[in-house]
């Protein structure tokens, strides 16, 4: 009786002894094959994802690629208002303008993609528009301010980011998006809180510290009145029809 009881155990052991190397080989080779054949596509997919946003709250600065970026002022001009008509802005569009102070570090961010993203109740997904293209015909010259990330040999500079977006597209939120190819998939997302400019010839709120800080510099730059209005520096009171920049 005892011989009958021990036979199955001996059979199990012999099967494992006979098959252990093929089983181990399959256990190693099968996952290895899957990893080898899909790893390239996986890394490409991961690199293509915009999954590493550096989100910056309103008024705060952030370092990106060794360069400091800070939004100092934001304004929105609505189509169909006096300000919009003076810029020849389509009545169905809004113009959103942000002014940033940029302080380069040791390794300058000398080129970048600039976009404006925004949300509204109808479009809670964060839609994006390229900045500083397709602007209204009478958008003023920006003077000494830059319209893209620049190599200023370490000197701080002012960056203007402007975009035309559908009317009401930024009703619930707006951001400036800065991305440099060599730093992707990291990108910078700076929150905006634009004040409305209903008319370029009407003084707008300039009580914020950001506006106050921008005002003196803008006076020095002698930027035109539209830029001044858009940058919440209404106290300059120049006519937007007489651009200087």
């Amino acid at each position: 009786m005892s011989g009958v009881e021990t036979e199955p155990v001996a059979s199990d052991r012999s099967w494992w002894r006979r098959n252990r190397w093929p089983v181990l080989a399959v256990a190693v080779l099968l996952p290895g094959t899957v990893i080898l054949t899909t790893s390239s596509e996986w890394f490409d997919y991961q690199n293509g994802l915009y999954s590493h946003a550096i989100v910056v709250a309103e008024g705060e600065s952030a370092e990106y690629g060794g360069t400091d970026f800070q939004v100092t002022d934001t304004a929105i001009v609505r189509g169909g208002t006096d300000g919009g008509e003076e810029l020849e802005l389509d009545p169905d569009l809004d113009l959103i303008v942000a002014v940033l102070d940029v302080t380069p570090g040791d390794e300058p961010v000398d080129s970048c993609d600039l976009q404006v993203s925004a949300t509204s109740p109808e479009h809670p997904e964060r839609r994006r528009w390229n900045a500083n293209v397709d602007l209204p015909r009478k958008f003023p010259p920006t003077g000494d301010s830059q319209t893209t990330c620049s190599d200023t040999e370490g000197e701080p500079y002012r960056l203007v980011v402007a975009a035309t977006i559908p009317s009401g597209a930024a009703e619930t939120g707006s951001w400036v998006v800065i991305e440099k190819l060599g730093l992707s998939p990291d990108y910078l997302e700076l929150e905006l809180s634009p004040s409305e400019v209903s008319s370029a010839s009407t003084s707008v709120d300039s009580s914020s510290s950001a506006a106050s800080a921008a005002r003196g510099d803008l006076r020095r730059q002698k930027s035109n009145a539209t830029a001044s209005r858009l940058m919440r520096t209404g106290s300059t009171r120049r006519s937007m029809r007489k651009p200087i920049g």
């Binding site: 569009l93 479009h123 839609r127 528009w129 390229n130 397709d134 035309t164 977006i165």
Partner: peptide, 10 residues
């Protein structure tokens, strides 16, 4: 048209 940049909402 195929040379134009397409924008959201416009």
């Amino acid at each position: 048209l195929d040379n134009s940049l397409m924008r959201p909402g416009i």
